[in-house]
Design a protein around this nucleic acid. Sequence first.
DNA 1: TTAATTAAGATTAATAAGGTCTTTTTTATC
DNA 2: GATAAAAAAGACCTTATTAATCTTAATTAA
Lengths: 137, 137
Amino acid sequence: MQLTRKTEYAVRTLLELVSRPWGELVQTCEIAETKDIPEPFLNKTIRDLARAGFVETRRGKMGGVRLIKPGDSFTMADVVETIEGPLAINPCLRDSYSCINKSSCSVRQFLMESQARFVEHLNSKTFAELIGQDCEK
Amino acid sequence: MQLTRKTEYAVRTLLELVSRPWGELVQTCEIAETKDIPEPFLNKTIRDLARAGFVETRRGKMGGVRLIKPGDSFTMADVVETIEGPLAINPCLRDSYSCINKSSCSVRQFLMESQARFVEHLNSKTFAELIGQDCEK
DNA sequence: TTAATTAAGATTAATAAGGTCTTTTTTATC
DNA sequence: GATAAAAAAGACCTTATTAATCTTAATTAA
Ligand code: SF4
Ligand code: SF4
């Protein structure tokens, strides 16, 4: 019952990028060092973020990664779902899992609500708000 | 980001026991069959529930398991914590995990809140309420 | 005394997470 | 064009966790 390291690393990466001037290109090795992330693993993580449209990368000399989705346009929930896929706090909240009671189970219903509450909160602040970016401007 | 099967099996077991007349002794093989749980695994799960004071077991001929904690005195959160230990939806919400920013990280603060919301909902209904026991009486 | 039943915990198997490595492609600069 | 720096891609490996099984012992009713 825990978010993965990869998700956490994605969060740290976005934290770094959102805090920088818009459009700035940052080398991954720099992020890896300041945010304490194994570099090759970070590269994979950044690729995931790139495929999902959060960032854009540029290779070759002077390459790096830059944010292309404004910090006020996404939330923690978006990041989590990008890295881990659709949330399901209990096996039976996935379509693939079959349980005898599934259709009428009151616990399942209840857990769906619990998850909804959780996601609702994850969605309650944009990343920019989260790092207090608006306050400082 | 998912509750374990063991937790789910504990839930099914309690679902079965709470729905029965108070004090009734049920054989584990019966629960295993009707609730579709591997029997040896269920035994371990029941032991966990017994150690935590939810149920009491009796061995030997005519043995089995019975509820000793009333269904209106515990919630999903209690079951989850009994089986999985203290909840921590992000690594840094455990004491043991050290992150450079830990002390001042706004994301960490936010995730603590998200978790609190989640747990709050898990605690919002007792097991008896969950299975609609009060309504039927 | 016997058979049924759970206790305890070692052991194994399967899956997922976390991390590393190698090769390729792209790019700026000399 | 040559060179070096950087990310892309994905194979690979290692470790941790989860899930399940198995074996032996203890308990109990009949
Ligand atoms: S018993 Fe209910 S909560 Fe458990 S897996 Fe089945 S449908 Fe889901
Ligand atoms: S960066 Fe913040 S959220 Fe991430 S591990 Fe560190 S303290 Fe926790």
